[in-house]
Design a protein around this nucleic acid. Sequence first.
DNA 1: AAGCGTTATGGAACCGTTCCCATAACCATA
DNA 2: TATGGTTATGGGAACGGTTCCATAACGCTT
Lengths: 353, 353
Amino acid sequence: MPSSEMPDKSVRATPGRAKRTTIHEVAKDARVSKTSVSRYLGEERKLLSDDLRERIEASIKRLGFKPDRIASSMRGRRTRLIGMVVADMLNPYTVAMMHGAETACREQGYSLVVCNTDRDDELERRHLDVLRAYSVEGLIVNTQGRNVDMLQELSNEGLPMVMVDRRVSELNVDMVGLDNHHAVSLATSHLLDQGYRDILLISEPIAGISTRQERSNGFQYALQACQDAHGDIIEVALTTPDALTEALKHFMQRPGAGPKALLSANGVVTTHICHVLRRHDSISFDTLGLIGIDELDWCALLDPGISTVAQPTQHIGQAAVDQLLARLSMSTRPIQHQLFEGSLNIRGSTRAR
Amino acid sequence: MPSSEMPDKSVRATPGRAKRTTIHEVAKDARVSKTSVSRYLGEERKLLSDDLRERIEASIKRLGFKPDRIASSMRGRRTRLIGMVVADMLNPYTVAMMHGAETACREQGYSLVVCNTDRDDELERRHLDVLRAYSVEGLIVNTQGRNVDMLQELSNEGLPMVMVDRRVSELNVDMVGLDNHHAVSLATSHLLDQGYRDILLISEPIAGISTRQERSNGFQYALQACQDAHGDIIEVALTTPDALTEALKHFMQRPGAGPKALLSANGVVTTHICHVLRRHDSISFDTLGLIGIDELDWCALLDPGISTVAQPTQHIGQAAVDQLLARLSMSTRPIQHQLFEGSLNIRGSTRAR
DNA sequence: AAGCGTTATGGAACCGTTCCCATAACCATA
DNA sequence: TATGGTTATGGGAACGGTTCCATAACGCTT
């Protein structure tokens, strides 16, 4: 017998979903129809007579029945899943926001499917595809903003969506984030108050990301309050570490209008700045002020403390979920952009002398 | 007419899942049966003739059809979901591990449903219930270990499961984590090498959590290498901040066998220690050494640098997923505990003088 | 031309729920 | 007793796919 080459397809061992007690078996056990069991499970429980209710309850307990959410979402069309697409899962801001969102979801009976794009557009598309395929009931997006078409389409299909942290102007959906103008003006005026007169805003490449743009604009605006102050903005890609080093060196050497300070546009930038400073001199804020947007675990730790503007990150995540659920139950409500105010934490890094 | 009080049930606006193109419409459009379309989508594509294949492909493109994963998981029984239950989502270790897991999932076509228990047993149970209800194909658990019965049950039902970071001895499932004995011995010998002779291990309450127990045991074992060294272990609940402060004060004042050092059992503890130290003196490691398990963003930053034993956190997350998928395709393979080695980062905080 | 093994295709059952609709049971009113 | 209006219950289609099984179509032998 000639053995024909043929891949063995028989292995396919454990099936994904284990066989469990079904509503049908409960119905049989309780001598009622599956409709009644379904009623018991859902919001129509009050329609049932005491008799049926008790029998069903007993059977469910005896058989250890747990309803299958997947099956129920088939006809019922409610997956109770919320999708979340984030650009950078390792960013402390993102983490705290996720945490707030997860908590809010749980409290409302939803679960969160988290997707990380690592700032990759193609990955973002793929993730959106997947989330659509799972019929998530809503989408929280922290997007790079280069897949507007796709997001637009999803939104048009009726998928509730809320942008978080960043807004995409073409996208006509709810948004939750920081009042960047206020935050940056808080930071800038503080620096000016402390006597700094030559200020450098360090941002990641703006590249159409609203948050960065707004912080940049806000900075320029806030500077105008002080005639004799000079401000500059520099965009550095953190992927090329030397860029930041060079930028800082250049800033320090350049003759300025007065005491120098850095304004870091976000937490990741702050971290990088500190690493660069540490690598060259040991960190001292006698000759160079520093304030950053985003509070980090260690800002109070690094002697003499780094001043920050803190975002209410967990609230933001929570608010995103709230918005989503609000829209879910009232799709016609007006589009809403919900901005939170940052709060200033003054520490040693901005006590000029 | 007496108006009877009655809640308005009619609002129930947008349904969760939008109406989309179905396999049935594609079939009609391509003049084939839905079976053929299903074949095209699945792994039986090679069974189709070129003619059909092309027609189906064209129709799918024209109609913009995207298969519904929920529906396909009904009969097909593969949800392509992985559930992950973590004790503390804000812990940097957890975050990095999640990141590794998310990446691995995506690469294998799975999605991750993340649940945070905030170290609450009841919440853990609820989350497990939910994940079961979604028929996740596998479970990654970073558990408090007080719901063994439930985890056991899930595992018995055939749900592949892998514990991460912490092991629960009663649970006969795969595990991925750090070689704690090695890590702690790395740290301890380093301290001894540097001449520290009075060492305090600071841990969160052991409370049956394997990782903490192992680090504690490993510490005691490693100490034996040095006759004239003295070691102590203290468990502090970080929820009562003064406990740690008191413990440190007591340790510092007590007469010791020689130079004193702290060994922090994990990153969260390290953070707390630094905060306490900073609040009292300014941090200086001249009179007190410090090394921590878990590398943190800022350990290199805090002058003169905090020594650590770093875990390959992302690898751990990735390995957890790998294990899960391996078991998914071969349920009979032997239980495996996969331990990674930590790596020592020597910095100024352990250069005794 | 009949018989047989392959390959390509379709029909229909099925997965575990929800929901629409029909109907039985009951009470009140005419 | 007939009529009508509730209320409690069940039957079965539906959801959007997958999979089992039957069969048509096609060579290839004999």
